[in-house]
Write a protein that binds this DNA or RNA. Structure first.
Lengths: 331, 331
DNA sequence: TATAATAGTGCAATCGCTTTTTAAAGAAAG
DNA sequence: CTTTCTTTAAAAAGCGATTGCACTATTATA
């Protein structure tokens, strides 16, 4: 039993393919009687229009491509859910590309997406350059970027206010009396890392504390990095009393390291994460963190993408929120 | 700057489109000199073949569709990573469909996938019926199912041995002296739930303990369900001394409930999860669980799919493993 | 009744590429 | 100097849908 195409339906119904097409797509210029008959036959033959042929003619795929960096980090799945839910309401399907922190994969997916399988792209990945994105946008592909601020007439963005996030976390620790605050940051090249660092510096400055680059490190944003950096920091003579991490999973690594070293959280070490993923309330102790509105981010990205498809450009910044749990305490 | 198509390249090079195609795809029947010239021009114009046109003729998309139930449950991302890594080695892209436990979405994605955007499908979702899957397979679409045992000449499967898993978990608790073991199971219709329940029963039977259906419940497999069921179970007069959950995130819910009720784990209540997701070693206390080899599952699914595309059918069962951490103790 | 308007269809072009077929040019052989 | 063979590239035929245009029956209008 092979797939049946429009010709076969047409033959069976004794009409032309165009008539079948009109009948099935609810177009006018066809008698109700014929329509019903064709619809019935199509149903009986289990005909569904071939996607490959269809998109070639209609020039619309009803797909959007969503590029994410690391599906294993729950930040992204939550974002994906927000995007998907909103997209599916308008009959769009989300094609997910996971790049596993690899620039090559990022480029590959982008290249693939730009060749036609989707009507627009949402990028929530940091490796690919702004220039590359701009190039694609100028070819006419609607693009929305998440968590990078990219001002360009053909690109929209939605981002958490990262500077604010870095500021909030640092300020919280400063208020608790900490002055030696390490920042286990994300990838150096990443705009997000840079913006959060700005927030960190700003808070320090306001508190009149000198910035010490020894307390800053740049890392691949996975749990393992948090663990390793924490070990390094905590084994020096001048160990910090508080650690702020680029994301929650890295904070998990820090917690693990502290436990292994017999350092009590929050009594001897305060930890603040970033993202507020689902599991952060289940750790021991529950993690203090900066909440990003992940579903919102995904949802807004799709909304902005739809607008962009209609030629309307709009971008926005979403305020993060400090969630105080039990990994931070007064110095 | 619009996308350039093969005609424009042909015009620029002063040859026909077919010649351009031959040049770029490395086909014979064209002089090396012409090929080089065309390749150069194509590069300069930044030409990349339009995907929509290409797949219509070649009948190959180099995509595989992967249907998953719940991207927010880390079980799936790990599986996805395994699949993606293996697929990309052969130049295939994975299109992910997340169905959020909705049968409608599952059907929609399947319908979409079956219309042509992919060369084959991997299904790791439980709502859609075997009959539906078989129908698609008989239309000629290669399909591999994960964690369901579906014997059909055109379908391959790879599954964790669920019965073994249920048995392992229950036996572990029995050996620790528990006799009243609740099982907060997954969806009733799901084959996985049924198979695990078989394992549970088998262990009970071997221990000479009567099966009590009051201790069994069927649920949507999310954290919330674990929480609610645990509250229900623990507030009855005859509370169980051990709880086995359908998956780890549900076990997280149980842990949360026990904490709120002031019940100590593992002293007063033992908990065993299923899956061994990344976060299970970070909970308080770290979770005893049954490990599924998730990346392996994803990787094998792709491998079997590739084989199926070449007409070779093969299926297999993967043994799960008991991971003992700190949520279980002697009664 | 003749003519115009309209409804219902089919034909053919199109989307952008690949692939088969055909033709032209050049080289080798007689 | 033909004839035959080989090389190279153009032309044409799909792939499976959609869609503008043209044609043929109807029906309505004068």
């Amino acid at each position: 039993m092979r797939r049946v195409n429009i010709q076969e339906v047409a033959k069976e119904a004794g009409v032309s393919p165009s008539t079948v097409s009109r009948a099935l797509n609810g177009f006018p210029g066809i008698s109700e009687k014929t329509r019903e008959r064709i619809v019935e036959i199509a149903r009986k033959l289990n005909y569904r229009p071939n996607y490959r042929g269809q998109i070639l003619t209609t020039q619309s795929t009803k797909n959007i491509g969503l590029l994410i960096t690391d599906i294993a980090n729950p930040f992204f799945p939550e974002l994906v859910m927000g995007a998907e839910e909103y997209a599916s309401k308008s009959g769009y399907t989300v094609l997910l590309g996971n790049t596993s922190e690899s620039e090559e994969k990022e480029t590959n997916y982008l290249d693939f997406f730009s060749r036609g399988p989707v009507d627009g792209i949402i990028i929530s990945a940091s490796r690919v350059s702004n220039e590359h994105i701009i190039m694609l946008a100028e070819e006419g592909l609607p693009i929305v970027v998440i968590n990078r601020i990219l001002e360009h007439p053909k690109i929209s963005y939605v981002s958490t206010d990262m500077e604010k996030g870095g500021y909030l976390a640092t300020m919280h620790l400063l208020r608790l009396g900490h002055s030696k605050i390490a920042f286990i940051n994300g990838p150096k090249h990443s705009e997000v890392s840079q913006r959060r660092l700005e927030g960190y510096k700003k808070a320090l400055k306001e508190a009149g504390i000198d910035y010490n680059s020894d307390l800053i490190s740049f890392n691949v944003p996975v749990s393992e990095s948090g663990y390793k950096e924490a070990i390094k920091l905590l084994c020096t003579g001048e160990a910090p009393t508080a650690i702020f991490t680029y994301n929650d999973v890295m904070a998990f690594g820090v917690i693990k390291a502290a436990k292994e070293l017999g350092i009590k959280i929050p009594e001897e070490l305060s930890v603040v994460g970033f993202d507020d993923i689902f599991f952060s309330s289940f750790t021991d102790p529950p993690l203090t963190t900066i909440k990003q509105f992940k579903e919102e981010l995904g949802r807004m990205a799709v909304e902005l993408l739809f607008k962009l498809m209609e030629g309307e450009r709009e971008s926005l910044l979403i305020e993060p929120e400090l969630i105080i749990r039990n990994t931070t305490s007064r110095r």
